[in-house]
Computed example of a mutant assay.
Amino acid sequence: METDDLSAQIHSLDPAIGLRAVGALHRLAEQVEAAQVRAARRQGWTWEQIGDALGVSRQSVHAKYRE
């Protein structure tokens, strides 16, 4: 999905289109978050540092991403 297409969907007056865009954004955000957590761990970041950067507790980010 291209950015312009997604932008148009987000601003659509049709809730079915807008809600599908919201779902796509949630999936994309989860993928980006997971990739960045992996990168941070590879660089030696602690779970506390990652949690702080994400605005969540270290326990919640660790529970979500521990391997």
Rank of each mutant, 00 (worst) to 15 (best):
L19G: 05
I50N: 08
A39C: 12
G44S: 02
R41I: 08
L6N: 02
V22K: 06
E2L: 09
T3M: 08
V56C: 03
A35M: 08
H26D: 12
E33I: 02
V61I: 14
S57G: 14
G51C: 10
A24Y: 00
G44D: 02
A40I: 13
E30L: 13
T3S: 07
R27D: 09
E48T: 12
D4V: 09
R66V: 13
L19D: 14
L54Q: 03
W45M: 10
L6P: 01
R58Q: 15
W45G: 01
S60E: 11
E48Y: 08
G55E: 01
G18A: 09
Q9L: 03
Q59T: 10
G51T: 04
E30H: 13
W47M: 07
V22P: 00
G23W: 01
A34E: 02
L6T: 03
P15K: 14
G23C: 03
L28D: 00
R42Q: 15
A35Y: 06
R58V: 07
L28C: 04
D52C: 09
A8D: 15
D14Y: 15
R58T: 08
W47K: 04
I50P: 05
I10A: 08
R27N: 11
I17P: 01
L28N: 00
R38Y: 04
T46W: 05
L6V: 09
V61E: 04
S60P: 02
S60C: 08
A29Y: 10
D14Q: 15
R41F: 09
S60W: 11
S12H: 06
H62M: 13
E30K: 13
A21K: 01
Q43I: 04
G23I: 01
V56N: 01
A24I: 01
V56A: 00
I50T: 14
A34K: 08
Q36K: 06
I17F: 07
D14K: 15
R58A: 14
E33T: 06
D5F: 09
H11K: 11
A40Y: 07
A8C: 13
